[in-house]
Amino acid sequence: MIRAAVLGGAGYIGGELLRLLLGHPEVELAAAVSSRLGGKRIDSTHPNLRGLTDLTFCAEEELEQYDVLLLAAGHGATMELLPRLAGHAKTLIDLSGDFRLTDPAVYEAYYGLPHTAPELLGDFVPGAPELAREALRGADRIAVPGCMATAAILALRPLAAEQLIEPDVTVDARTGSSGSGATAGPANTHAERSGAMRVFAPAGHRHEAEIAQSCGVRPTMTATGVEAVRGVQVLCRATLRDGVDETAVRRAYRRHYADEPFVRVVAQRRGMYRLPEPKVLSGSNYCDVGFAVRPEARQVLAVAALDNLVKGGAGNAVQSLNIRMGWPERLGLEFPGLHPV
């Protein structure tokens, strides 16, 4: 059994990390750091954890030695924290955007600030098991992709890898309010969010860079906040290359995901949930991907859905940890989601 600590444990992603690690048979959750809530019980912030632990939040200065440290700090914070945190654990898993991109100039262009530790960018392996499984087996620095980026990458990767589509794609992403974090501002109060479908990123969303880096496409992305609490759904539109039909598209998805434990191809002709729907994935580590083809127009719509806090964050981190430690990938991640919700 290994000892784990979570930094940023008071947030929504941090809470999901705590939930998953408390239920993991090979992990002892030894510490949860919060700069605001030191000394308070973690179940006072995350009431779903009542009865599972007596752990209290601690300060960063109280950290000891651990086997793995999971960092759920805000964007821009991890690159500042890393030099003083690196000595606390052999394996570091970062869930911020600080080490997802390999080019510091691209990072600055999309995040609006210079990267303060560019020399460390090459040390991190993507926390994306479907893309980097072999590299994760020996990785001590892991950077988990963003939630909408994960969905779009899993939707587009088979088509791009097999050169079935032209490089220019559009990504229309919808996300629930938990994606804004536990300390979101006035725009995310219930009074403002309820009933709204707010386009908060009409152009140049930062996940474009991750999608381009992982898939080799040229994405144009928009993001809309919807009334749901959890969930991400992406609609990716692309032009098929000459001669590509629906059969070729379906075969590409089946080849890429036939053996993946947490990716399911959902593209049915009948039924209520014919294409991926985030509602039925709440709490699970699954990403469902699907497609619809208009052969006469040479168009494909690639759809993906996931829980932004699990497969879009904490679940991907735990799945990557399982691979790193040589454990079964499903360990601690077996919850299938609920229906109806």
Results as ranks from 00 to 15, higher is better:
H207F: 14
R206L: 09
E260M: 07
Y107I: 05
T175G: 14
R270T: 15
M272P: 10
K90M: 07
E208W: 06
E28P: 01
P25Q: 05
A155S: 07
A203R: 15
L121G: 04
V226E: 06
E62M: 12
E16A: 03
A209N: 06
E166C: 03
V171I: 12
R206K: 08
M1T: 00
N188K: 14
G283Q: 13
D307W: 05
T116K: 13
G195K: 14
P47Y: 06
R250F: 13
L49R: 01
G76W: 10
F335Q: 07
A86Q: 11
P336T: 10
A191T: 11
P129A: 07
L95C: 02
R41W: 12
T222L: 11
A10M: 03
L70S: 00
G146E: 04
L154E: 06
A173G: 11
L154A: 05
T56W: 11
V263N: 02
D123V: 04
L306P: 09
F200D: 14
H24C: 04
T222P: 09
S282T: 13
A105P: 06
S177P: 07
A73G: 06
A267E: 14
G231P: 07
D94T: 06
P340K: 11
L240I: 00
S284F: 12
E329G: 02
V300L: 01
L333Y: 08
W327Q: 03
L120K: 05
P104H: 03
M221P: 04
T220Q: 14
V106E: 14
R264D: 09
H207Y: 14
Y273T: 15
G290V: 10
A212H: 06
P328M: 07
I165N: 02
D123S: 09
H207W: 10
D43T: 13
G76Q: 06
L37G: 12
L275W: 12
P276D: 10
G179V: 02
L159R: 04
M272C: 11
L159M: 08
V234W: 07
A30W: 05
R36H: 11
P114L: 03
R269Q: 13
N48T: 11
P83M: 10
L22H: 01
P295T: 15
R294G: 08
A209C: 11
L309V: 07
A203G: 12
L92R: 00
R174N: 06
R206C: 06
